[in-house]
Design a protein around this nucleic acid. Structure first.
Lengths: 145, 145
DNA sequence: TTCTTGACTTAGACTGTGTCTACTGTAGGA
DNA sequence: TCCTACAGTAGACACAGTCTAAGTCAAGAA
């Protein structure tokens, strides 16, 4: 993640304790935190950080292209630091767990011209839904209730 | 849409004026209204209908499988009556216009086993984003501002 | 090192979307 | 007609996110 901090400094980003903590919280693979979760984890290290700062910082990271905003459930948006490698999401319909996946192929090519309604199409978002291994076991196994 | 009303009656749904108006508002192709828009249009025909009734009725239509809930912008959910024909969405990133599209192929098959993390995958949601013809013209043409 | 400046942060009010609750209305059977 | 259960209502509440005004601080200049 120091890469990210370096890139941000290179872009003239003023580096404050708050921004550093938010960037650090977003480090890792398969990280998809809501703004409130980011705030909670940031506040564990820097108790006085405010919600507005977390929203501001997340918004800046998104517009700099360093973080992706994903909304898989129609509720809170989630923030995904894995922005430099195009990927899709696999979501558990029961517990909400999210995994990043990297299928081959280019889904944009699957859209025939006749279905484009004259749109200039530039992006595709693909979300696979199903049950994660744990929830599938719970659904099939002997019901302990 | 009288099909829908017939189906609902067949399921023992008590058909009231409020429910009929909500179902009628959702008639048509490429219809993707927010709950508030449904409420506004329903209230034009039945002024005393309440917001809670619109939410309740939409929720019932969704759980009966007659209407789909889609959230393309992370803001308000939209309700899509085109639930009996599997389809995907094409969204204008500028004005938010939504079109239903029906590409061939089965996107589920594009997900190799090695990328499934043990999930039992049952659905795919695909959203294409770009500019609709009107917004593309506005972006390219001589700026009238 | 100290000063200056403008960008950054803060608390809290505000908005939009959706849910819940307690009460009222009403369709249809006894 | 009366009863009962389901449907509808208004309004309070909850959650996610945005905005504002005022205070704070990082970083360059002297």
């Amino acid at each position: 993640m120091s890469d990210l901090l370096e890139r941000l400094r290179g872009r003239g980003w003023r580096l404050t304790a708050q921004r550093r903590v938010v960037a650090e919280v977003l480090d890792g693979d398969h990280v998809h935190l809501t703004a409130d979760e980011v705030h909670a984890r940031a506040a564990a290290r820097l108790p006085e950080i405010s919600r507005a700062t977390v929203y501001n910082t997340l918004g800046e990271l998104v517009s700099l292209g360093e973080v992706l905003e994903v909304s898989t459930d129609g509720r809170a948006k989630r923030y995904d630091p894995n922005a430099h490698r195009p990927h899709q999401h696999l979501v558990c319909s029961r517990c909400g767990a999210i995994r990043d996946i990297h299928p081959g192929g280019n889904p944009l090519a699957d859209l025939p011209a006749g279905e484009r309604f004259g749109f200039t199409v530039s992006e595709v978002e693909v979300t696979y839904r199903g049950l994660c291994p744990g929830c599938a076991r719970a659904a099939h196994g002997p019901d302990p209730a």
